[in-house]
Computed example of a mutant assay.
Amino acid sequence: MDSKKIKLKLENISQSYIVKNRVFDAVVGVSLEVRESEFLVILGPGRCGKSVLLNMIAGLEKPVEGRILLDGEEIRGSDERIGMVFQKLALMPWKTVMENVEFGLKIKGMKKETRREIAQKYIDLVGLQGFEKCYPNQLSGGMKQRVGIARAYTNNPEILLMDEPFGQLDAQTRYAMQDEVLRIWEAEKRTVIFVTNNIEEALYLADRVILLTNCPAAVKDVYEIDLPRPRNAVDPEFLRLRKLISENTDLAL
């Protein structure tokens, strides 16, 4: 893993806001490198600044300090090479699964036959074949997340950002979606940056875990997760790492 190319690099990234005439720091001096094809998990307590950090990588917010480099070149805003899956999916309720998944390609002006062929590939990949004509209100929470993942992949990103995508799912569906995301990642081998506040989820998914402090977010520690997949949550090494990270995690305020 260490010999892999550095795909994304954050150099001393900070973000702050003016709140009631005072400066509020959300992220302070975050520097990290993301390897090509890596499944990187950013872990931290609730409301610590994880989503703010991800929004800066996605180009939705501009850092007040630092810079972000993709393949060695600084990016200054949104970039088509970076896709994002949000916790609260912005699926269009009046459009079918197929229409939601192909939407980005349609906006780009791609011909219907071509975009539908690409969209169908990812609909099949996420296990939604047969649901192409269904509307979001006809789908379960897990199925809606699959639509969001398929839509993100259809736009052919080199890096996929996932902002606590399973936080609103029930436990059983969440476990199933963790396996599903790993299956898709292993099939596609794209770089994934996954944000969570769940230690077990981080350990189950990650090649490497970046542990953040409580707000303002800063890098507290980095853990290489050298466990074979599929992982077992009661494996002694899994339990050892969970205890180690838990004891090192700041309590949410």
Rank of each mutant, 00 (worst) to 15 (best):
M1V: 15
K5E: 10
K7F: 05
E11T: 06
I13S: 00
S14I: 05
N21W: 07
G29I: 01
E33T: 05
I42D: 05
I42T: 02
G44L: 10
P45K: 10
K50A: 11
K50C: 12
V52L: 06
L54M: 15
A58E: 00
K62Y: 06
E65I: 01
G66R: 02
I75Y: 07
G77H: 01
E80P: 05
G83M: 06
M84R: 01
V85A: 07
V85Q: 02
M92H: 05
M92E: 07
P93K: 14
K95D: 10
V101M: 08
E102G: 01
F103A: 12
I107W: 12
M110Q: 08
R116Y: 08
E117P: 01
I118M: 11
A119M: 08
Q120T: 13
K121N: 12
G130S: 14
G130A: 15
E132Q: 12
Y135S: 15
G141I: 13
G142R: 04
Q145E: 09
Q145K: 12
R146L: 06
G148C: 08
A152N: 02
Y153W: 05
N155V: 07
E158Y: 04
D163F: 09
G167M: 07
G167L: 06
L169P: 03
A171H: 13
A171S: 13
Q172G: 14
W185L: 15
E186A: 14
E186Y: 15
E188R: 03
E188C: 10
R190E: 05
T196C: 07
T196D: 09
T196G: 07
E200T: 03
R208E: 03
V209K: 00
I210Y: 13
L211A: 07
C215A: 09
R229Q: 13
V234S: 01
P236Q: 09
L239I: 06
R240E: 04
L241Y: 12
K243Q: 15
I245Q: 00
E247A: 12
N248A: 14
T249Q: 05
D250Y: 12
L253V: 08
L253Y: 11
